[in-house]
Write a protein that binds this DNA or RNA. Structure first.
Lengths: 211, 211
DNA sequence: AACTGATTGGGAGAAGTTCCCGGCTGATCA
DNA sequence: TGATCAGCCGGGAACTTCTCCCAATCAGTT
């Protein structure tokens, strides 16, 4: 089984590589820390499986998975992420990921996941599976909501530290409207107060944005 | 050389472990994802070197380094962190770390760092060294300031999403005083506006707090 | 003794937030 | 074809919070 790894931290990536190479039947044929480069590697190597972090520069993991599924259907994609919000997990699987492995998980899981992938099965880390099944009462409205388009835009700008007024200018709408969006999001997410929303925005919204 | 690893993510830890074990003369005699447990491991194993992430649950990395230096002077501590703000680097070195390795660095650095430690030398990842030398114009006041005690407390509570009023209650002081602290911090850090400070607080202040 | 820096707080005006309200569009449904 | 609903856009008024300027106390230093 030929693998390509994608993780923004070279040292972590090198470690994962060692772990993979120690497994029978696994061969790492490429690695990168960048989303766009990942696509190039996939095009060049046609690997059986890509093991990728969701938070990648230049092209985030979700989008990368979609592109891979679309253009290189012979290559499967499995997420190996530090974060495990339900929304992330669902987004990844919806994008076509064949599994979701948490870095919080034990090292043996890597082996289980690769074996599962080899058998065309889907592997989910324990403690993540409930995101899909939806049985466990996560109690938090936060990570089971998909926000409307404009609200997501507002949220993303909040995460970048913009003020209400700046957001209004950037989006070409009134500050009052931005406040309305914010209010609806707080309502939908079950958060109270602007700072709670900002905290949420920063915790979740890092995906596409650095700098 | 006997090593103990500390990193909150088991999978990453396992990877680092493989990398270390592949090096001549290095033996990993313990690993953990928790600050307190790290101290116990050190007490039990008396390793030559501890390789630790700064962001650890139950006891953060800086404090752990101090404790180790104080109680187990035979054990050296080297940081292996995903983040590399100047303030973090300096704090770690001041606490007694014998090196600072960035996860952004290449895998070979691990070998260089361990060799340096064996020779009683200090290793700093390239791109981090300037934090100490202070030559490179980092331009950002943010990561070259150490805040006074109470201001740090306020900052930490801001990072936890507390409102001004809540912070005032928790600290037993007037809300006006909290505002003054905040203003001084913004001044010291070169930030403008409460949300900028909050962003900074959340980006940096995760150390001790989860949940 | 004078000084610096940390900590504590007040007052007034500016700014931002919350709550309540209505209008507009497009999609879905009876 | 209406009817309805969700997303989007904004106003007004009351309220809360923030900013800016000011001052007092205390510790450690020169």
């Amino acid at each position: 089984m030929r693998l390509v790894l994608a993780d923004p931290q070279p040292l972590v990536r090198a470690g994962i590589r060692r772990l993979c190479e120690a497994l029978a039947g696994a061969e790492v044929v490429g690695e990168t820390g960048d989303g766009q480069q990942l696509l190039e590697q996939v095009a060049r190597q046609s690997p059986d499986l890509v093991l990728l972090e969701l938070q990648l520069p230049s092209l985030n993991g979700i989008d990368a998975i979609q592109q891979i599924r679309r253009h290189y259907p012979a290559t499967a994609a499995m997420v190996l992420s530090a974060r495990s919000e339900s929304s992330q997990v669902r987004a990844a699987l919806k994008a076509g990921a064949v599994g979701y492995l948490s870095k919080q998980g034990e090292a043996v899981e890597l082996e289980l996941a690769l074996k599962a992938a080899a058998r065309q099965q889907i592997y989910l880390s324990p403690g993540i599976a409930h995101s899909v099944v939806g049985q466990r009462k996560s109690a938090r409205a936060e990570d089971s909501v998909t926000l409307p388009r404009r609200q997501q835009q507002v949220l993303s700008l909040i995460a970048r530290g913009k003020s209400t007024k700046e957001i209004a200018n950037l989006m070409g709408i009134s500050a009052k409207t931005v406040e309305t969006h914010r209010a609806r999001m707080m309502d939908a997410l079950g958060l109270y107060g602007t700072n709670a929303l900002m905290r949420y925005a920063i915790r979740t919204g890092l995906e596409g944005a650095e700098g």
